[in-house]
Design a protein around this nucleic acid. Structure first.
Lengths: 346, 346
DNA sequence: TTGAAAGCGTTACCAA
DNA sequence: TTGGTAACGCTTTCAA
């Protein structure tokens, strides 16, 4: 197990110089077809695989990219975003000889340090920045460090290359769906205001309602968790007269919508008869709960694919030119059974 | 961003040889206290961080370990095991200068290739082997490759170092709990038989029931998913007379137990009145569903911590001695509201 | 087309 | 205690 095959062994076996081996194996010109064949044969016979360490040192590249997740463990556990996102990243990275380093930092400060260390010892060639926050400190940091980076679902004007999936169309479809069902009293349960996507979703919701000429209604801050949905349901539904309750509620993600529905049920309010509830994300769990959850379905896997593509492009870019952003297909409304006609006032 | 500070710069600044810088910064003997101070000062002033690439090449170590997840994306998404497991791993790796490479392979064959590649280019110094299968081909593979590895929840006699959390006590407690409630007709919904932990849990269940002098009852194979639980409920409950139905069911994991409960509810059977259902894992979701889920709670985070400790120990072991296995505290029964007294026959 | 040698940034060995 | 230098395994440049 100890002495692995090196380029020297291959050169010796093929009877050529190591530089020729390098050229031949990397499909570079300057090697005759004949010697190339000899070299390839020798390499195969010896089972030669270039050492990443040697390559890294020489090429000044780690062939590794990083993802630092800065959420508390529970959210990560229950959030299906990362599983799919990482899966998508992987499918791009692997064929191109890159690998993904995953780190977790619960504290925001800790997260920054992770990026710093990653950059300092050049462990990665670039990083993903997901779950962007308002005035996210990671952005100036990677800029200062000169660390290639790609942002996920960034706002317009983002100073780094970004991949986005528009939520506007889907949320607008949701509003139209609810309006078409006769709803007039709306409410929105947001995510934590420090995340930009929480604000993005709220804005799309408000804009669509305004365009429909309807009041935006109540807005309560949730936290993307099941418990947050429970709390929101308590705030919006508990102890209120029917006429004071919203009849159509959008929660900023599916998990909180499911929490909301659960608590609503305990309060004796059934969806879709007594009220309509919708989420955002499109997680599998939403197809299992009863009623099944109407939602706006996103595509985290594709987001990962494109993010990885962009990051590698940014890294391998020779000229310093910025890589163009990518927008994947917008998230779309998926109507299930948690939304229905507005209850008739009586 | 381009020219980073190297050990040569530090040596020049401190007016010493690079070998002295290396010794001083790595707290090796052979450097006078005085020069050490000068070197440390120079390093700090220059903001020197040793290059991982240089170190890797010289030390013949990647300072990286790998985790290859071989599940299909959906299971990964909804399985909280990995989030916590990885979180635990991280807390050990980071302070010791190691990082985690995460890869995903849905096909078993693909997974093996990942390990092979990881080993061939020496991208990692060691790997975790989780979700062990019966006659898992990864075990002979890492053995053949000479790749340090740690198994998670391996069976006795496992040829590699392993970290385990015993499920026996918790499942026995569950059986005693159910027996104490007067149940006599049991059923077990397993995980896929190719995973050893599915078998481990079934065996613990059967043994405990046998010891109690009660019939083991029906055993149906599930697949650890919500849908698998639904299917199992269809098989065990649908279209059966009350006297032919089991009254106490253990599902091999929480997710399938929740699916089982959901389907049971649709069939008009309420837990805990009409039947008792328990899971295994202790996921958060189990505290949210109604009824809340009785389960055997595991500690994936601690499993990750100990697995990482063992792996680093194995890697850094100078003598070839095997590292001793670690058993963390057994998983324990957590009684919630999905289990209750056996329904009175009428 | 081929080969020799420098360089990447460390660590480790061996003289001085 | 110090410093010089080989070694790690590759890529790349420059002569031959």
């Amino acid at each position: 197990m100890s002495n692995r095959v090196t380029i020297i062994d291959v050169a010796a076996k093929a009877g050529v110089a190591i530089s020729s081996v390098s050229s031949a194996l990397n499909n570079r010109p300057g090697v005759s077809e004949d010697t190339r064949r000899r070299i390839v044969a020798a390499a195969k016979e010896l089972g030669f695989v270039p050492s990443l360490r040697g390559r890294s040192l020489s090429a000044k590249r780690a062939f590794t990219v990083g993802l630092v997740v800065h959420r508390d463990p529970y959210v990560l556990e229950s959030d299906p975003f990362f599983g799919s996102f990482i899966g998508g990243i992987e499918t791009v990275l692997d064929p191109r000889g890159y690998a993904l380093i995953l780190q977790m930092g619960s504290e925001p400060v800790e997260t920054l340090d992770r990026y710093r260390t990653l950059a300092a010892n050049r462990r990665v060639d670039g990083v993903f920045i997901s779950d962007l926050g308002v005035d996210d400190p990671r952005v100036p940091l990677v800029l200062e460090l000169g660390l290639p980076a790609v942002g996920v679902n960034a706002d317009p004007g983002f100073p780094l290359t970004a991949v986005r999936q528009s939520h506007v169309e889907g949320i607008r479809e949701l509003v139209e769906h609810l309006v078409g069902l006769g709803h007039t009293r709306f409410a929105h349960v947001t995510g934590p205001h420090e995340f930009i996507h929480a604000g993005q979703r709220l804005r799309a919701w408000s804009d669509a309602l305004e365009d429909a000429g309807l009041p935006v209604g109540e807005i309560v801050e949730g936290d993307f968790t099941y418990d947050g949905g429970v709390a929101a349901a308590n705030g919006l539904l508990a102890g209120r007269a029917t006429r004071d309750r919203p009849t159509a509620v959008m929660c900023s993600n599916d998990l909180s919508a499911i929490g909301f529905l659960g608590r609503a049920g305990e309060l004796g309010l059934r969806a879709p008869d007594d009220l309509s509830v919708a989420g955002f994300d499109g997680i599998e769990l939403g197809t299992y709960v009863r009623p099944t959850l109407t939602t706006v379905a996103t595509n985290p896997r594709l987001l990962g694919v494109e993010a990885a593509r962009l990051l590698l492009e940014t890294i391998e870019r020779i000229d310093g030119m910025a890589v163009a952003d990518v927008d994947i297909e917008p998230a779309r409304l998926v109507v299930r059974t948690s939304t229905g006609p507005a209850p008739r006032p009586r």
